[in-house]
């Protein structure tokens, strides 16, 4: 694996989860640091210079959301939020206040590792993307040309900016509010129906089976994710 020397900080109050994560992450070649509460977590996030932080939203000493905000005050380190189901509101707030992805407990280790990889790839600073390839989708940003299985597909300018946003955040979940704000502007951040229509159109034009999308997937109650097809 190509992820040697990557430090990952786990902030979770449950010792069992911390142990599980330590074993499975170290097995994949990451160096793992552990913190059992918010205070330790914040300290460690400065000390051990992590490449990525796994943050549990339910911490004993401080609300996970405010920890998230504090981390963002001094660092751009990618953060994946761990949370239980039924807390979509908290997840959306965490994402909106700067975390990069989320995974619900209980989770599948394979799924978690895939998320971590996507996050780390995304934050390689040298990675500029004039050309983007995912599965049979090919996008050339210099010419604004979009190809699916080598066939040119015409997109409207809104569709293209939506696609560009997905590509910039490839592999990562993006919230409805964030997409609407970025593509349509702040006054539209509640108009979810626009988004539904345009995502459906993107799927129609770019997915091989629009009724069973594999690239533009829905994260129920939260937003969308462009899946990296590996």
């Amino acid at each position: 694996m190509n992820c040697m020397n990557e430090n990952i900080l786990v902030i979770d109050d449950e010792i069992q989860i911390r142990r599980l994560l330590k074993i499975s992450l170290e097995d994949s070649g990451y160096k793992v640091f552990l913190a059992g509460n918010a205070k330790e977590g914040l300290q460690e996030s400065v000390n051990c210079r992590p490449s990525l932080i796994l943050l549990d939203l339910g911490l004993p000493d401080e609300d996970g959301l405010s920890v998230m905000k504090k981390i963002r005050e001094f660092s751009e380190t990618p953060v994946i939020v761990l949370s239980v189901r039924n807390s979509e509101k908290d997840i959306v707030s965490a994402l909106d206040s700067g975390s990069n992805d989320y995974i619900t407990k209980p989770f599948n280790t394979g799924e978690l590792l895939a998320r971590i990889r996507a996050c780390l790839r995304l934050y390689k600073p040298e990675q500029k993307i004039p050309q983007f390839i995912n599965g049979n989708l090919e996008v050339d940003f210099s010419t604004r040309e979009v190809k699916v299985s080598d066939k040119i597909v015409k997109l409207t300018s809104t569709e293209f900016s939506l696609l560009a946003l997905f590509i910039r955040n490839a592999g990562k979940v993006i919230t409805h509010g964030y997409i609407l704000k970025e593509v349509w502007g702040k006054p539209f951040s509640d108009e979810v129906q626009y988004l539904r229509v345009y995502v459906a159109q993107l799927r129609k034009k770019l997915e091989s089976n629009p009724s069973n999308p594999v690239m533009f997937v829905t994260e129920s109650g939260i937003g969308y994710r462009m899946k990296i097809i590996e």
């Binding site: 069992q16 599980l20 499975s24 209980p106 989770f107 599948n108 280790t109």
Partner: peptide, 11 residues
């Protein structure tokens, strides 16, 4: 506990 079991087993 469920998360621990599932995480471990999936690993």
């Amino acid at each position: 506990p469920i998360a621990t079991i599932m995480g471990s087993v999936s690993f």
